[in-house]
């Protein structure tokens, strides 16, 4: 699929408008507070647009589509959990109200008031380690999307993404958060248009009754294949045999529109032939009678905790992660800290919450539709895996003009995420790693120069790490595990520090160290297993590592604080009155 002049015009107008708006905001930057938190001038709907645009990047769309490709709509379970977590936090003000009232620029700055400068520095280091590594795969996956959507030659991937990053750096370095907010608003609109139109097209191509029927059959075929491979004994205790029979998926000589009722009834599917229109049944029937190609499997498409689903442990881990993300993830919290007051921050959360369902469910829909499409085609093309199947599918679906809009939408998603993340991590390095080490505060001009230089340096790191690093497994696993390096420990510090008077710096230090042990042990043990499987037969499931991280961090905080109470009696009962006092001054 190649771009037409109309497509190029749409992309060009978007890029020029966006960069011009971003550069224009430079005139309002007078100091670090304007640069890092937009002078705390952000109102509700600008906050909604900025939060949504920042947290929906191309990488988000790629990994959520991959979850849809492997697990159907059930792959969007995290989207529902994160929306629930965000709404509840927006309703109660849990963590975000005291944090905004403290008047800080970053989360670690809050820790200094409670646990001392050492904990602030250590927390800043952990945030940077988890956050920058997490961001490491953004550029490459953004480029891969373009490669598979518009047929961008692979050799141009690096130079294209470097040029895109240069545009982002231009306005982020000049205008900071003020530029990020205005460009996020424009990117929210372009991205929203692309997502809505693509979702409608996907549902037009694969109507919902066909979609559900095909995914159910695919799951039954997967169960049957696994049963044949491993025998019933490995399916788990107390589980019944699958209702699908392998022979019901095998080839038949009946024509497609006749084969469907026969195949569905023998496979035990709830969908019936009459529920599907003549047109759609003719276009999708071949999948009914085709076995699943190699490398294509479908988990339980609707029930995440049902047979063949993601499992209770996984859902519990994702629920903990969702709560930790909405209260601890610095790029999300940056919008809380840039809000005019805590009431505005809570309203932003409540009004953005449901957007996070679509953030997983809509690209997940595209991914699941891609599964059905490639099943009909007899398998994935060479060089296309579960992560890259969705953009390749969209390339066959989108007509002229809409392809240009989709490219502009994905560039918007990539740019808004990159700019928000670049600024956030640069602010943490400046505010929590460098400034605590400086005895005499430099001038406003020097401080602005430092933070702008840090944005450029992180951009350079991204070019070299992000474009040359090869992803070893599922994108979502990589993102959650690197994110967990800091999510578990900092979530524990925030909850303990804000709501448990006994918490002290010994407990906080123990929580930071133990919280990182789970994700790091996951990375090391699984690396050893992949390296020498005979000597290291065990692997750690990501949900076990993730839940262990939260358990270890909370245990570290509780035990460490109780032990610390013996040595630091004067810190017991210290609360956030200090922080509130700072704000009122």
């Amino acid at each position: 699929m190649t771009l037409t002049p109309l497509d190029w015009a749409i992309i060009g107008v978007y890029l020029i408008g966006c960069v011009a708006a971003g550069v224009w905001m430079k005139r309002y930057v007078r100091g670090v507070e304007d640069f890092a938190v937009a002078g705390r001038e952000m109102d509700v709907y600008l906050g909604v647009a900025s939060l949504a645009a920042t947290e929906v990047g191309v990488v988000t769309i790629m990994y959520t589509a991959e979850m849809g490709f492997t697990n159907g709509p059930a792959g969007a379970t995290y989207g529902v959990l994160s929306a629930l977590a965000m709404f509840l936090v927006g309703l109660t003000g849990f963590v975000i109200t005291p944090m905004r009232n403290a008047g800080v620029m970053t989360i670690p700055e809050l820790f200094e008031k409670r646990f001392g400068v050492g904990v602030r520095w250590l927390a800043g280091l952990v945030i940077i380690l988890g956050g920058v590594l997490n961001m490491g795969i953004f550029l490459r996956l953004g480029g891969e999307f373009l490669v598979h959507l518009i047929g961008l030659p692979q050799q141009y991937l690096e130079v294209t993404m470097t040029a895109l990053l240069a545009l982002v750096l231009l306005y982020t370095v000049l205008g900071g958060m003020l530029s990020v907010l205005v460009t996020d608003y424009l990117q929210f609109l372009v991205m929203g248009m692309g997502i809505v139109i693509t979702s409608v097209l996907v549902l037009w191509h694969t109507p919902w009754p066909v979609f559900t029927q095909q995914l159910t059959l695919a799951h039954q075929a997967t169960s049957a294949a696994q049963e044949q491979e491993t025998g019933l004994g490995s399916l788990g205790s107390g589980e019944s045999a699958p209702s699908a029979k392998p022979q019901s998926i095998s080839a038949t000589t009946a024509p497609p529109h006749q084969a469907q009722p026969q195949a569905t009834s023998s496979a035990g599917s709830a969908a019936t032939g009459t529920a599907v229109s003549q047109k759609s049944s003719e276009t999708t029937d071949p999948a009914v009678v085709k076995p699943l190609p190699k490398g294509m499997k479908m988990g339980n498409p609707f029930n995440p905790v049902g047979r063949g689903g993601l499992g209770w442990m996984w859902v519990l881990w994702q629920a903990m992660t969702a709560l930790a993300v909405v209260t601890t993830w610095q790029t999300t919290i940056a919008r809380v800290l840039a809000a005019r007051d805590s009431k505005t921050a809570k309203r932003i959360y409540r009004r953005t919450a449901f957007y996070f369902v679509g953030r997983f469910a809509l690209p997940g829909l595209w991914g699941a539709a891609a599964f059905i499409y490639f099943w009909q085609q007899g398998g994935l093309p060479e060089g296309v895996d579960t992560l890259r199947a969705m953009p390749r599918f969209l390339a066959t679906l989108l007509p002229m003009g809409l392809l240009g809009l989709m490219v502009a939408a994905m560039l918007a998603a990539e740019m808004s995420t990159d700019s928000g993340y670049l600024l956030t991590w640069a602010t943490v390095i400046y505010n929590d790693l460098l400034m605590p080490l400086v005895r005499r505060k430099p001038s406003e001009k020097t401080r602005l120069l430092i933070i702008r230089s840090l944005v450029v340096l992180i951009g350079l790191f991204l070019v070299f790490y992000g474009l040359w690093y090869q992803l070893p497994g599922k994108a979502w696993d990589y993102l959650v595990v690197t994110g967990n390096i800091y999510l578990a420990s900092l979530f524990t510090l925030l909850v303990g520090g804000l709501y448990w008077p006994t918490a002290n710096r010994i407990g906080a230090t123990a929580a930071i160290i133990l919280g990182a042990v789970g994700p790091l042990s996951f990375l090391i043990v699984n690396f050893l297993h992949d390296w020498k499987p005979d000597q290291f037969p065990w692997k750690i499931a990501p949900e076990i590592a993730g839940l262990a991280a939260f358990g270890c961090a909370f245990a570290g905080m509780i035990v460490g604080s109780l032990v610390g109470r013996l040595f630091l009696p004067n810190t017991v009962g210290q609360d956030w009155s200090l922080a509130r006092k700072d704000e009122s001054q």
């Binding site: 709907y45 909604v48 647009a49 949504a52 608003y185 609109l189 929203g192 248009m193």
Partner: peptide, 10 residues
């Protein structure tokens, strides 16, 4: 949200 946030955010 395209229209509502589009108008209010602008």
């Amino acid at each position: 949200l395209l229209f509502y946030v589009g108008f209010k955010g602008g």
